[in-house]
Computed example of a mutant assay.
Amino acid sequence: MPRQVIVGVDESHESRAAAAWAAREASRRGVPLRVLHVRAWGPPVSSGASQSAARRLARRVLRGAEEHARAACPGVDVVAEQTGGPASRALLCAAEEADALVLGSRGLSALTGFVLGSVGQSVVARAPRPVVLVRVGCGSDDRWPYDTRDAGPSRAVGRDVVLGLDLYDPCDEVIDFAFDAARLRNTGLRVVSAWSGPSAFTLGPGEVGLIDGPRRAEEWRGFQSAVLRTWRDKYPAVAVTGDVVEGRASPSLVRSAAGASLLVVGRRTRQEPCVGTRTGPVTHAVSRHARCPVAVVPHS
């Protein structure tokens, strides 16, 4: 299957920021950028005039997104196309063919445009490949503030990638994506893990929770270091720093990702039929509060 980065776009400013981010990512990976617009979906009885208007809007949206992509990265290979809805199904189908699917996001006010509300949540929760959410004003992976009027250089300088690593369930797909993202950007990787103290319901004989707080933290740091050892060897050029914090993971990740080039978190895939929009509490929280692009990586 040909490798590519795909960005879903509409007429919003968020989509333009996503297109610029996606162009840089495609350039870093050495793959084409596919710009995709999903036309408004309606019943088959929709009038010919309505369908014609939708196609005109799609062409205008695609032109604008392609212009922003080329401004951000003039050398990128861009392919623009439109397709019919429903939007969630079209985006999920596209994601199957992507290194990453990129979408514009408004953070606290939910995903925008054709990925508004439940549609956007469904895409993030069900996509078979990583989904990156990009916000206006925070979509750069450079050292400078970014908006769609200032494309900046194509490589990050001095802004780390942040990985939210679940030490209770470390996953190769998530870790590999984060290390590779740092390698592609020629920057460091900061790994953040959270742990919780024991309770009457979770404490068992011989567990780390039997020791005092400082020693428990040291044990968790040892766990994190052991998990990362193989990946340090695989990516020797990536400078890695680790941080283990007590308490809830999402606030720590949001703080750690302030000024980061990318925040990487995981989403467990499920074996039941593809219904619902659950992404997990940590992924749900950071996708709305983080002030940098957020990559949600599915894993088994």
Results as ranks from 00 to 15, higher is better:
Thr241Tyr: 03
Val131Asn: 05
Asp180Val: 08
Cys274Asn: 02
Val275Met: 07
Ser140Ala: 15
Val45Asp: 14
Ala257Met: 07
His13Val: 14
Gly75His: 01
Glu246Gln: 12
Ser300Arg: 13
Arg149Lys: 09
Val31Trp: 08
Ala95Gly: 15
Ala20His: 02
Arg268Val: 08
Thr83Cys: 09
Leu165Lys: 00
Pro170Thr: 11
Pro251Thr: 09
Gln224Thr: 10
Leu163Ala: 07
Val5Glu: 04
Arg89Asn: 04
Asp147Pro: 03
Glu67Ala: 13
Ala98Asp: 03
Ala260Glu: 06
Ser52Trp: 12
Arg190Lys: 15
Ala54Arg: 14
Val45Trp: 14
Ser109Tyr: 07
Arg16Met: 15
Pro130Lys: 03
Ser193Asn: 06
Ile175Pro: 01
Ser46Gly: 11
Thr269Arg: 12
Ala72His: 10
His13Asn: 11
Leu33Asn: 05
Ala26Asn: 05
Ala257Asn: 06
Gly120His: 01
Ala26Asp: 12
Ala239Val: 12
Gly197Tyr: 06
Gly213Arg: 10
Ser15Cys: 08
Gly213Ile: 05
Trp220Gly: 00
Gly8Leu: 09
Gly209Arg: 00
Val61Asn: 06
Val102Gln: 03
Trp231Thr: 01
Ala181Gly: 10
Arg221His: 15
Leu91Asp: 04
Ala127Val: 00
Arg288Gly: 09
Trp231Arg: 09
His284Gln: 14
Pro251Leu: 07
Val102Met: 00
Trp41Ile: 02
Val264Met: 03
Trp231Asn: 07
Ala249Trp: 05
Ser140Cys: 14
Glu67Tyr: 05
Glu173Ile: 02
Glu218Lys: 13
Asp150Glu: 12
Gly42Asn: 13
Asp233Met: 05
Val123His: 04
Val244Asn: 04
Glu25Ile: 02
Ser300Cys: 04
Ser225His: 11
Leu62Ile: 13
Arg55Thr: 15
Ala98Ile: 09
Gly158Ser: 13
Ala156Tyr: 00
Trp144Tyr: 12
Val208Ile: 15
Pro153His: 04
Glu81Val: 11
Ala239Asp: 10
